[in-house]
Design a protein around this nucleic acid. Sequence first.
RNA 1: GCUCCGGUAGUGUAGUCCGGCCAAUCAUGGUGGCCUUUCGAGCCAUUGACUCGGGUUCAAAUCCCGGCCGGAGCACCA
Length: 541
Amino acid sequence: MLGKVLGAHPDLRKDAKEVASHVGEVLSGLAGDSKSWEQRLRKIAPDLIDEIHERKQPSTGLPDLEVDGGRVALRFAPNPNGPATIGSVRGIVVNSEYARRYHGEFIIRFDDTDPKTKAPMLDAYTWYLDDCEYLETVPDRVVYASDHIIEYYEYAKKLILMGKAYVCTCLRDEFKRYKDACEPCPHRDADVDVNLKHWEQMLDGGYHEGGAVLRIKTDIKHKDPAMRDWAAFRIVETAHPRAGIGGRFRVWPLLDFESAIEDHVLGITHIIRGKDLMDSEQRQRYVYRYLGWQYPKTMHWGRMKIHEFGRFSTSAISEAISDGIYTGWDDPRVPTLRALRRRGITAVAIRKFMIDLGIAETDISLSLDNLYAINRKIVDPEANRYFFVWEPVRMEIIDGPDMIATPKCHPGRDDLRKIPAGSTLYVCRTDIEGLEAGDKLRLKNLYDIEIMSTEPLVARCIGGTHEEWCATCEKPRYQIIHWVPDEHVPVVVHAPDQTYGGVGEAGIVEELGNIVQFERFGFVRIDSVDAGRVVAYFTHR
RNA sequence: GCUCCGGUAGUGUAGUCCGGCCAAUCAUGGUGGCCUUUCGAGCCAUUGACUCGGGUUCAAAUCCCGGCCGGAGCACCA
């Protein structure tokens, strides 16, 4: 308000204090309901009446992109040395979301140029594509860096001819010493034809692993040591696992070179990735400058740490799996998308979760509770309800009428499930712990009981059926517990922290693959039903 | 050691570019209540933040400088 006034009357600025107090007075005089404001405004300035209804729309999710060419192309470039982790999912979701918003292209590029230290895993290629399908972010194009090695060689040669790249045979430590001292190594100023000859030798097997690298000439005195003459190619004698690649190449590009070339060749307009690759951008810009290319626009998000998983790396998980600590890449304790899928976290929830995070450069440390809350809103209106009794205890009922309980499949719908109940029931140990003879309970959708004895557990039916109860005016309220009849199925639930064993109502076997709610327990995805034995994965409460 | 990012409630996030409509948004969590023959669900209420210090300005979450804290890079990994 004050800003408006001062903006219109700059001469008043020197008396801003006074003006401010006047404004304050006027504003407090306006206190009242918005209806009366509206009426007054209609009199004074009818043309402004619409603004009163305008609400500043708080922006959520992803900010708009800076688009100048019209065309938009984004890529997600994973190393297929393991399946998509929750971190990769951010890259997939954010990039594909932008492609969708701007009717652009979304490309998956497998940066599989290290057959040795980060050996590609054949299954991971397919898993990535399968995960994209699950997330409904099917890429418009899939490319493999390992298919383009020859092309990288051509650009390398070009840069050598331009005097912008040289073959360096320093030992690793040797070069580091030069670099840290801002001094050129002895190979830096070699003639173009010498470099060319050495490059050919690299390709032809004249050097062994570790014997030579091709460096991009930057500025050996650059104030940031990370920029100084970085390595673009090195020799790797390990075969690549992809059929058709195998042992064909011994000279492999490093990320900065491979990615620099690919992004240009693919016509990528925007690179959105973690800020750990910010320096990488600066290195790659040298190549773009030398080749006269324009670097894509970039955005970065900060480092992401999930409370439930802590620090993790694909190779660490891989190791833990081969050590038998985890059952596989979809073990519920592992931070992969495959594990979340198995647990029943929906694609919609995962996408919303990632989009809500936005692309702030702040390093974040957050809990999966946020994801669970989103997922719950999606799953709760649909999921059928069932009784699952963990740590079951057998209970005999005296005077229990034989009857069929008919709880609703879902509190919001009218379809019913039918559970025949006799004189033997099972209830959770935790529900009867601490009870003594004389205590009363309500068996959900069945009848009220009074505990007669706890060892063995015997109870007496004391109330009418659910229908009778509904008809009476007096409605006593005992603690409500759920139960499972004598006729039931064994159920095992795998949760990240523990595994629950128990029994469930028979209808559960019909829900293979579905997400259901075990009442008073939580949501669960029915993973397998084998000869009446049910295995479920815990989703969240 | 050098370099680059960042720092808004317990946790995320909006606002920061273009200083005043910000006594600061939304979500999640916490707390209290209501409802209910499931619930940790739903409904209602409530709680709680601009990293610190200087500077510029009539006016700073927003601009400038410095400190502190966090993260990353300086690999023949991605």
